[in-house]
C-alpha cells in the first residue's frame, strides 16, 4: 500500500504544481500544452486509483480533444494574455480560501480515504457490483403507493423484484453500470455531446453553402445582416424583409444601402458617444 500511496502523493503534487502553472503562465500556447500535461497526469492519478475507464477518457479527451479545441481557438484569438490585473487578486483569493475552507471543513467528518466501511462502499454497492439487482416486473412499475418507501420496509428490496441471473455477464462493471443500470444518464450524456456539436455549428458556421457560392460571385461582399437588422430606417427594413430574403440577391442597390446604413450607424454611434447616459445600463460585472 505504501508504495502506491507514495506514487499517488507524488502524482498529486505534480498535478497541483501543473494546475498552478496553468493559471499563472501568460503565454496561452504554453498554457494549452500544460493543460494537456495536466490531463495526462490526472489520467495517471486515476489509473493509480484504478479508475481505468475514467483515466482512458481523460487521456483521450483532456489531452487530445481539449488541446486541439484550445489550439484551434488560439488560432483565432492569439496567444498572448495581456497583463492588466495585479499579480494577486485579493478578493478572489478570499473567496477561494473561504470556499476551500468550507469544503475541507466538510471533509473532516467524512469516512477516511479508502475506508471499506464507508457508506458508499456498503450501501447498495454489492448488488450493483455483482450485477444481481433483479428487475421489477413491468406490471408493478406504475403502482402508486409503496414504491417510494417500500425499500427499507421490504428488506432493502422493492417488493416483487426478481432475483436476476444476469450474474457476472459483463466483466467490466463500469460498463454494466454505464450502459445498463444508469443507461438513462448515459443517453443524456450523449445528448449533451450532440448539443455541444450543434451549438458549435450554430455559433461558428460562417455561411451556408449557397451563401458562400453567392458571395464568391459578387465583386464586393455585402453583409446580408446589415440590411436586415439596421434600425435607422424602418421603411427599408420592411421592404427588404418582404421582398428579398438575405443572401438571395446581389445588386448595386445592396451596396448603396450598405453604405447608407454604415453612415447611419456611424451617426448613431456618434450620438451615443456624446451622450453616454442614454446608453443601456445593463449590469456589468
Amino acid at each position: 500500500m505504501l508504495n502506491l500511496l507514495v506514487i499517488d502523493g507524488v502524482l498529486l503534487f505534480l498535478v497541483t504544481i501543473t494546475a498552478l502553472a496553468v493559471i499563472e503562465m501568460r503565454n496561452l500556447f504554453a498554457v494549452t500544452m500544460l493543460t494537456g500535461v495536466y490531463s495526462l497526469l490526472m489520467a495517471a492519478v486515476w489509473t493509480n486509483m484504478h479508475a481505468v475507464d475514467v483515466a482512458f477518457t481523460e487521456a483521450a479527451v483532456g489531452a487530445g480533444i481539449s488541446t486541439i479545441l484550445i489550439l484551434g481557438t488560439l488560432v483565432h484569438v492569439g496567444v498572448k494574455e495581456r497583463r492588466r490585473e495585479k499579480s494577486l487578486n485579493l478578493s478572489a483569493l478570499l473567496i477561494v480560501t473561504l470556499t476551500g475552507g468550507a469544503l475541507i471543513y466538510g471533509t473532516l467528518d467524512m469516512p477516511a480515504f479508502g475506508d471499506p466501511e464507508a457508506p458508499v462502499q456498503t450501501h447498495r454497492f454489492q448488488k450493483l457490483f455483482d450485477q444481481n439487482v433483479g428487475k421489477v416486473p413491468v406490471t408493478d412499475t406504475h403502482h402508486v403507493e409503496a414504491v417510494a418507501h417500500g425499500a427499507e420496509q421490504h428488506g432493502g428490496e422493492q417488493h416483487g423484484a426478481h432475483e436476476d441471473e444476469f450474474h457476472g455477464h459483463v466483466y467490466n462493471t463500469v460498463t454494466s453500470l454505464l450502459a445498463d443500470y444508469r443507461s438513462f444518464d448515459t443517453m443524456f450524456e450523449t445528448a449533451v455531446i450532440l448539443s455541444a456539436g450543434l451549438s458549435m455549428i450554430m455559433l461558428l458556421r460562417r455561411r451556408s453553402d449557397e451563401e458562400i457560392e453567392a458571395a464568391t460571385q459578387r465583386t464586393e461582399r455585402v453583409d446580408p445582416d446589415t440590411i436586415k437588422t439596421e434600425r435607422m430606417d424602418p421603411k427599408t427594413t420592411q421592404t427588404v424583409r418582404v421582398d428579398s430574403p438575405p443572401g438571395s440577391d446581389s445588386s448595386g442597390a445592396d451596396k448603396k444601402l450598405a453604405a447608407e446604413i454604415a453612415e447611419a450607424v456611424d451617426s448613431a454611434e456618434q450620438i451615443q458617444h456624446d451622450a453616454p447616459e442614454e446608453t443601456d445600463k445593463g449590469d456589468q460585472v
Partner: peptide, 11 residues
C-alpha cells in the same frame, strides 16, 4: 413512479 430499465429505483 417510473423505473427506467425496470431496475428498482434505488439501483
Amino acid at each position: 413512479t417510473y423505473n427506467f430499465g425496470n431496475w428498482p429505483s434505488q439501483y
